[in-house]
Amino acid sequence: MQTIDLRGVSCPTNFVKAKLALEDLDDGMIAQILLDDGEPVKNVPRSLKADGHKLLGLTQTEEGYYILELKKIEE
């Protein structure tokens, strides 16, 4: 599974970085995206959904950041 670490990256750079990283994945592959609390965890999942990817779940870590799991969907 691909891990895309977007901690410490603010909007909209984090979303654009996620898009670039997802370009390298094959259709149907699962990725874990690490997101900071606040704006990033509120905005990035919804934008990735709007791009057509399948969101699978969100978990909060003990350290306070979030792991978004998604399946890449090729358009």
């Binding site: 965890v41 509120k42 999942p45 919804r46 969101l55 699978l56 779940g57 969100l58 979030y66």
Partner: peptide
């Protein structure tokens, strides 16, 4: 609903 919690997190 798959109980992912994304909506709760998104709800300002």
């Amino acid at each position: 609903c798959i109980s992912c919690g994304l909506c709760v997190k998104s709800c300002v």
